[in-house]
Every structure is written in structure tokens, then in C-alpha cells.
Design a protein around this nucleic acid. Sequence first.
DNA 1: GCCAGTCAAGTCCCG
DNA 2: CGGGACTTGACTGGC
Length: 321
Amino acid sequence: MTIIKLGYVAMSTQLQNASPSQTMTLRQFQTIADRDAAIAKLERIAVSNLENCLRLLKHNSANDIEFFRFSSKLIPLANHEELDDWKYMRALKEPLKKIADYLEEHKQRVDFHPDHFVLLNSTKTEILNTSIKTLAMHEALLKGMRVDTEHRCVLHVGGAYKDKEKALEQFISNWALVPNKIQRMIMLENDDTTFSLRDTLYLCEKLGIPLVFDYHHHLARNDYKEWEEDWERVVATWSHSALPIKMHISSPRSEKEYRAHSEFIDPKMFQAFLNKIKGSIPEIHCMIEAKKKDEALFQLAEDLRNMEGVEAISGAVFKLQ
DNA sequence: GCCAGTCAAGTCCCG
DNA sequence: CGGGACTTGACTGGC
């Protein structure tokens, strides 16, 4: 028996005016003559984003959703060098505390997927440092929410830099430069072009990092299709984590645009995956990466209710026989 | 009100 | 070596 929990990403198609990613560009910031006023505006946006996160968490609880990825665009310009002196966390204490209080009463697994320019395998010190700085911002947010920071940020391995093997080794040597408290937040995900499931496993096993399996990314690759023989290795990377194994699910937009994400999840594709992993683990959390966000989750939940061998425990939690 | 273009960040590909 | 694509949601400016 395997418990399946469904989650979705960042925003809701159902909740109106609840964007957690409102923003301000550098140009906008610079056109405001009074710098303090401009910073105050940035803070208002960030506070509003966090308030919308709380609304989203309440929406989740109301719909039995216990798994959610926060937007990584909560604080506009947070790590821009132009705003180096901005102590953005000060203005966010209260809204973060409200999230913390809510999460204490309404358990949800929450995490982040920092944007693709967070690169831990870069050979450029500056890029590595910016990446660590961005991760430190994620850490501060998690702490403000009183969430245990372990295994809360999923990243890709990074760039190939014309030599994939070398780029993998670069990740390992850079890892030693990453502060311990940042290291413990990280999970790694296989990608669809450069680092395959096996490449990512190599790093995860070597460095003790949990691997988030992206089924769609794996299927989008041309080098090899088998993943079943590596599944036990994936599971093993989670053996030291307090959290159940997590994966990403999405479906191709079309045969032609195979790598692009479609609006909804193809239930047949998901069922094929479930059939393979059946009984191998007690629990799995599936992050739905679909254009239609929570609407796609509700649709998949409906499909699961009609699926043979699957039993609904609640609106977004299921039991696989 | 709608549509096109722009926006912090990096990498990769093409000419 | 330089420029555009990639990908994403939010937002602005032009109509």
C-alpha cells in the first residue's frame, strides 16, 4: 500500500487576485525618485505576496491539499546588488509569523524551487555566491515560517559548460563551499536535456542529497528510457530524510512540443508510473507542474477516484493498493 | 479591455 | 563574439 499526496505550484486558478508573485522591475524601482518610498513599495508588494501565500494555504486546507510549492518570486529584487543594503526581512516578520501560526495548526508540506539561475555547479565564483545568497533568502523565509529547512529547495544540477562530466565534478567541488545549513535544504532534480536521472543519482548518492524524480523530464530524453532499474536508488536517496519521497509530474503539451508542460495531467501517463512503483514505498508526494495549477490537481484527483486500485482518502490524498 | 513588448538573474545555440 | 531563444507570470504602454 502506498499513500499518494498531490500538490501544486505557487498559485491558484480558482482564487482571485491572490498572486504570490507580484513584482517590481529594476527600471520601475529606479524611476521612483525617493529611494525610501521605492523600498517601501517593494516591501508592500512582498507583504502582499506573503498574505496571498496564506490565502493559498487556507485554500489548500479547505480542499484537503497537504503539499504546496511556494513561489520563489515572493520578494522582488531581493538579491539585486542595487538593493544590497535593503534588510527586507524586517518588514516581513509579521506576515511570515501568520503563515507560521497557520502551518502549525494546518499541516502542509511546503517547499521551494528556486529559479533556474541558481547554479551550484558554476565555475564562476560570482554566480556561485549569488546562488548561495538566493538560497539564504529561501532559508530566511522558511525560518520565518518556522518550517524545518531540511530538504525544502529543489534545484537542477546546473549547466553543462560543454563538458558534462567535468560539470558534475564541479558540482562536487563547489558543494564543499556551500554552507552546511544551505546544503541541508537542497534536493536535486533530473532534467530533460543535460543531466539525466543517472547523472543526478551519481551526485545524490555521493553527496547525500535526496533526488526528486521528474518523470516527464526523464521521458523527454533521448539517451535512455529505462528508469525502473534505478528506482530503488532514487528511493534510497531519501532514506535519511524526515520527509517522504517526492516527485514531479507533468505531461507533454503535444507530441511536437514534448518538453513543454500541458495544462492538465494525462492520467494514463501517471497511472503507468504508479503501476511501476506500486508497493515499493509507503508514501509519495507528487508535485503537479501544470499550467492549470490547482485546477489540474482537482482534475487528476477526479481521475484517480475513477482509477482501479486507487482509493480516495480525501480530496487530494489517495491510497494505492 | 485587449495585445504586444518588457523585465534581475544564466546558458546555449547560431551566425 | 554578439544576439536571440529559452520560459514564466506580472505589468506597462499603446491602441
